[in-house]
Design a protein around this nucleic acid. Structure first.
Lengths: 206, 206
DNA sequence: CGGAAACTTGATCGAATTCAAATAAGGTGG
DNA sequence: CCACCTTATTTGAATTCGATCAAGTTTCCG
C-alpha cells in the first residue's frame, strides 16, 4: 500500500489483525468540523491494533504515512491462539501496556508542556521506539512526518511547528531534511525536552 | 481510606490488584517541576489498574479524591484465573479497551478543542460513566472534583476553569455546588461540548 | 467561630493562532 | 531530465485565548 491511504476506516469490522511490516502509519481521530488528532504512530512490528482483537470496530482511522507493507491475520485465529498459549497473551498484554504508557506520556505533554517541549519529546519517543527496533543510528533516523502531522499530534498549528523547528535548526540543535531527522546537539535537545541528565537512562537509544 | 491520600505511588511493586468499591480516585502523573497531569478518574467498580496485572510497577500515582473503599486481590491469583477462565480475560480486555477509548477522547479534546469544550466534554464523559453504574440521575450526580482537578485534567489553569464554569452558571446551563453537579440546560450544554443532536445516541445517560 | 482552602474577579501579559503572502520542495507527465 | 504544478514550509504582522499576578470573597471543616 502506498502513502496517504486508509488502512482502516473508523467503524469498519475488524475481521483481521493487521501487522505493519514496513513503513509508518498513524491512528487518527477526526472531529466533525475537520480538525484531527493523531493518537499514535504505528511502526514496523506494530499491530493495528491491540484493541482490534477485542472490539468489532474502532472509532478511529488508520492511515499510511509512507508506503506500507503489512500482513493480515484472521482475528478468530489469534483469539484461538490466546486461549491456548499463555505466552501470547502476555506478549499482547505487554504491547497494550506499552501503548498506554506512550499515550499517557503524550497526554501529559499536550496537557502540561509548552510547544518546544512537546515537539522535542514527541521526537524522542519516536527515536526510542525506532532504536528499539534497530531502525535508528547515531541519533539519526528516517522521519516521514510532515509538520502538519506533528501539529496534529501535539496540539499546535503547523505554522507554529515550523517556527519552532526553524529555531532549533538555526541553533544547530536539530536537522530535518528529505525524510531524515538528526539530533545535532543532544545535550541541548534534551534541555529543550526538559529531560534532566539523571533521567536519561529512561530513554534507551540516546 | 480518606480523601487526598495515595492509594498507590509510582514505582511501588504492584503486588495487588486494587478494586474501587466506593468513592473517586485519579491516576496522576507528576512532572519533575511540580506540574501534574490527571490521566483518568477511577470510579466505583474500576480496577487500579488493568496495567497492574501485567506490570511490576507503574509510572503514575493513584490518589483518592474522596473517601474510598477498596479491596485488594493478589495479582498472582488473577493471573491464575486468567489462564483458566477465558471469560475473565475478555472482561479484562474489554475494560482495557474502554480505558483506552476514554484516553483517546481526552487526548483529542486537550489537543484540538478550546477551553469550554474541553471542560464540558470531561463532564459528559464522567456522567456517561456514572450513569452506566446507576450513580447519576436526572442529569445530576455527585461531583467531588475541585476546579484544580479539572484544570490538571484538561490542560488549563484553575483560574480559567473558574471563569468558564462561572460563565456557564450565569447562563443557566450548569450548576455545581457542594459536591453536586447538575446540567440545567442540556441542549445548550451539548452545544458548548460541540455534540450535535445526531451524535447524542453515542452518549448513553443523557 | 476561626482559619485554611477553594473559588471569584480584575488587570495585564504572553504564547500560540490566524491571516496572508512568499519561497521551497516534491512529484508527474512529456 | 526538465517544466510545471501541487503540496510543504517559511516568514511577517496582527490578534486572541488562556496564563499570570494580585486581591478579594466564599466555602468548608475542625
Amino acid at each position: 500500500m502506498s502513502a496517504r491511504e486508509n488502512i482502516y476506516m473508523a467503524g469498519e469490522p475488524t475481521d483481521n489483525i493487521v501487522v505493519i511490516c514496513s513503513g509508518w502509519a498513524a491512528r487518527v481521530m477526526r472531529l466533525p468540523d475537520g480538525r484531527r488528532q493523531i493518537l499514535s504512530y504505528l511502526l514496523p512490528g506494530d499491530i493495528i491494533s491491540t484493541e482490534s482483537l477485542f472490539r468489532d470496530s474502532l472509532n478511529y482511522h488508520v492511515q499510511s504515512l509512507t508506503d506500507v507493507h503489512y500482513s493480515r491475520i484472521r482475528r478468530t485465529d489469534v483469539a484461538e491462539g490466546l486461549k491456548r498459549d499463555w505466552s501470547l497473551l502476555s506478549f499482547i498484554a505487554d504491547m497494550m501496556c506499552n501503548e498506554r504508557e506512550e499515550a499517557d506520556e503524550l497526554l501529559a505533554d499536550v496537557g502540561q508542556r509548552v510547544a518546544d517541549e512537546r515537539i522535542a519529546r514527541l521526537i524522542l519517543r519516536l527515536i526510542r521506539r525506532m532504536s528499539a527496533r534497530g531502525l535508528a543510528t547515531e541519533n539519526a533516523f528516517s522521519f516521514p512526518l510532515r509538520q502538519q502531522h506533528i501539529a496534529d499530534t501535539v496540539g499546535l498549528t503547523p505554522v507554529h511547528v515550523s517556527r519552532i523547528i526553524s529555531a532549533l535548526r538555526k541553533q544547530g540543535i536539530l536537522s530535518v531534511a528529505r525524510g531524515e531527522l538528526q539530533i545535532v546537539d543532544l545535550p541541548r535537545f534534551l534541555d529543550v525536552a526538559r529531560i534532566r541528565p539523571r533521567e536519561r537512562n529512561a530513554w534507551p537509544g540516546l
